[in-house]
């Protein structure tokens, strides 16, 4: 009988340790992933720019075309294009924990400064 209770107590001890490690691990890694997401969004916009597929759409306010060229697994995303003075096309998404990545552009064939904002939020 003594052996049985020792086993039960050992199992409880292991469960306690594992639960703690899982809880701490998930909190840390989810937070880190969301921090990195802003950088991933910026890199995605930069990559589009490098391929010559950003500016032409940005200056014409075609956020949908930019959005269709971006892929972020496990996340929804949308684009807003803002000009000097704060006038923006596209809307801030109606979602929680939205992460924003920004990319400044001075123009395409002529000077036309704007900011492309990429909003990303977790798929539910």
């Amino acid at each position: 009988m003594k052996g049985f209770w020792r086993t039960v107590e050992s199992v409880f001890a292991i469960i306690m340790l594992m639960s703690f490690l899982l809880l701490v691990g998930s909190t840390y890694f989810i937070a880190t992933a969301e921090t990195d997401l802003s950088f991933v969004g910026y890199e995605a916009l930069k990559e589009l720019d490098t391929r010559g597929e950003l500016r032409q759409y940005a200056v014409t306010g075609d956020g949908d075309s930019i959005n269709s060229k971006i892929s972020m697994r496990g996340f929804n995303h949308s684009i807003s294009i803002c000009r000097y003075g704060g006038t923006c096309t596209g809307q801030y998404p109606d979602a929680e924990d939205v992460i924003v990545s920004n990319y400044i552009i001075s123009g395409h064939n002529s000077y036309d400064p704007l900011v492309v904002r990429l909003y990303a939020w977790r798929r539910t």
Partner: peptide, 12 residues
């Protein structure tokens, strides 16, 4: 067996 529990608590 209780040492396991106390030990686990201390590690946590």
């Amino acid at each position: 067996g209780q040492f396991f529990l106390i030990g686990a608590l201390l590690i946590v």
